[in-house]
Amino acid sequence: MNRLLRARGLTKRYGRKHALRGVDLEVNSGEVVGILGPNGSGKSTFLKIAIGIVRPTGGEIEVLGQRPGAGLRKHVSYMSENDYLYRWMRVGEILEWTASFYDDWNDAKSQEIIEFLGLDRDSKISSLSRGMRGRLKTAIAFSRDVQLYLLDEPLSGIDPASRSKILDVIIREYRPENSSILLSTHLVMDVENLLDRVVFLSDGSVLLQGNADELRSQHDASINSIFIQLYG
């Protein structure tokens, strides 16, 4: 099994506040790993470090055998939890503009996802609802053929119809034979059946991690129930 991401003792401090306190985490090829935890547990910070837009204070991280940076971003797809699209662009415009940066952009796939998600290339992004913008972020992330998708809270703050559509895209576009997904969420119920492995984060530390099915058997409970027990 190929190791795509490996973090050892990853630490991030903002002033005196710790966002991550020595996190060990791995992602192997062909698996969907969920970083679970409430808001502020360090999930987003971890993903931002993995993509290289936040620098760790300590520890090591290697993604696809590289240190995070512009070079790595050519080969990894990232979707932020934030509403970070250029609102003055049209849907088609942001797709084309983003595509111009990548060699692995798959136009046919992009078109298919846009249609599946009911997005109109001529709509202005500023006129889209939050759910639609969430769909667009997903479409952008999956328009590329990469080995690793990093999805930060892909479903949070989004209406149920869009959540369901986004989940469908993730399942449709995920190819275990050549890609992996690392996603963070605090909405465990929605992704319960999607995760191969889970990592529970709390206050920047790993509380519990393991194979989703094994955890279900050990605790005789769903991942969602374990989540509620851990943080309740």
Binding site: G30, E31, V32, L167, D168, I171, R172, Y174, R175, P176, N193, L194, L195, D196, D213
Partner: peptide
């Protein structure tokens, strides 16, 4: 089947 059941393909496998 993964798409129909909305589960991870690895689970179906």
């Amino acid at each position: 089947l993964a798409i129909m059941l909305r589960v991870n393909p690895n689970t179906v496998q």
